[in-house]
Amino acid sequence: MDKKEWPLWEVFIRSRSGLHHKHAGSLHAVDATMAIENARDVYTRRNEGVSIWVVESTHIMASDPEQGDMFEAAKSKIYRHPTFYDIPDEIGHM
């Protein structure tokens, strides 16, 4: 086996102008240039994208799913949603 494995990169693709880049998958490459070239061949063979971002997987920090209360605060604040408020129909669209 190889002494050193090529690093893993996460690939994000903007499918068309005006939309966010969205995670498409990952791949191995020696550097960012090669990661972008490989991402083109692996993830955009059918015009799936107009722009590619790559970032080394080790640079991504993620929240911990075991930390159950992470999103609790938002769950209890239903008054942040417009449907929380009763507005009479005659007011029309608001």
Binding site: M1, D2, E5, W6, L8, G25, H28, D41, V42, R45
Partner: peptide, 22 residues
Amino acid sequence: QDEAGHGLYLYSAAETLGISRD
């Protein structure tokens, strides 16, 4: 070429389970 791509998507999915490509 698609088959190669499919292999790569799947290797990536397997790697998320903590096994390396090597």
